[in-house]
Design a protein around this nucleic acid. Structure first.
Lengths: 204, 204
DNA sequence: TGTCGGTTCAAACGATCGTTTGAGCATACG
DNA sequence: CGTATGCTCAAACGATCGTTTGAACCGACA
């Protein structure tokens, strides 16, 4: 295990797993480097510090996630009749599909943990780097739900976000026996999330 | 500040604040005892260990919270026409009212953080000590939503829990200027949460 | 007054943390 | 061949952590 890829990638992979399991402070560099099969000093050599490593763990996944989200959003808004389900699917499915490769499944727990920690540094980082994605989705929600006032809409989006974060953090906790059942479970989760979000967003 | 009450109570109060701000590992006993105005050794003398202190911080608030919840639930199920709103209010309002005294407002962030950390020890503690509360509420939901299958109901309750946890964790982050605006904000939060949860639970 | 259980105190303990260091190794280039 | 460069390694650094220790303090009671 962990015997493939460059040292940097082995560290990133092990970091994602251990951060999800024990938290950012809870996972020590000694655990981490041992699991990755690299020397203790490798983290500071390749990343500069533990904090920079945390940032890189986030960047690697979130860049791909939000790129995927925007691409899916662009697909559906180009259609003649965009529905709320379509937009929500563009928001939700890419997040759940992050768990397609084995390691990625733990990333959502890393993200959920980061959200809960309310660390201003991390929240600012998320807002600065990926705020425009949220803004695009919010604008689309506003267009599809014109009857809602701005504050009302923000409230509902916030509650939907909470439900999504919660579901994602629990997602992938159970080790699935096969890829096919994993896929089925992901599809079920997406269906439940989307229907729930539609109801929560559009109720009178 | 922190010059009133017994040593144990001063520690519990300071612990709640610092655990919410910096996490369980992030808040050190030296910070904590300094903020409480007590000696460093006082934690180990009165609580045995830091872990025991964490458990006591949880017990003190959760005992009151769940007692309050069950009392409110008993009120509404005694009525001739129990509504979904009533049951949700019995579940949600006591949690938001925990922030009535100044220190308590941070406890919900402690709880949200604990949820996100997915620590099996802590989850087992919560399940063992307060699982019966959740079971009673679930039974009431099942009674009011007979059209839903068991798995479907569990899914929706889980998503509602996510939204509640998320909203509670953000609640009380902004320091309100007065008690009255605090009260207004809590009432608005409760209203949004309840209406959102009703829509999410009862959609066809 | 003497002493005794409960509590507080400064100081130290060993462990573990993130980080730094300098030597050693490997590969590529003149 | 010599050496320059990128990387790995064991070892150590200072800081901070939770916990323990033993003396000092204090009101209550005989």
């Amino acid at each position: 295990m962990n015997s493939s890829g460059s040292t940097k990638e082995r560290i990133l992979g092990a970091a994602e797993v251990l951060f999800a399991q024990h938290g950012f402070d809870g996972a020590s560099l000694r655990q981490l480097t041992t699991a990755a099969g690299v020397n203790l000093a490798a983290v500071n050599y390749h990343f500069g510090s533990k904090d920079k490593l945390v940032e890189q763990v986030f960047r690697r996944r979130l860049d791909a996630l939000n790129q995927h989200r925007l691409a899916e959003l662009a697909k559906v808004v180009g259609q003649p009749q965009t529905t709320l389900e379509d937009v929500l699917a563009a928001y939700i499915r890419p997040a759940l599909e992050l768990s397609h490769d084995g390691n990625g499944s733990l990333f959502m727990r890393v993200l959920a943990r980061a959200f809960a920690e309310h660390d201003d540094t991390l929240r600012q980082f998320l807002s600065e780097n990926y705020g425009h994605v949220m803004r695009q989705f919010t604008a689309e929600f506003a267009r599809l739900l014109p009857q809602l006032s701005k504050p009302e809409l923000y409230w509902r989006i916030d509650l939907v976000t909470g439900a999504l974060t919660h579901a994602m953090s629990g997602f992938g906790m159970i080790q699935r026996k096969s890829d096919v059942s994993e896929q089925v479970h992901r599809e079920q989760t997406a269906q439940h999330l989307i229907r729930f979000a539609v109801a929560g967003l559009s109720h009178p």
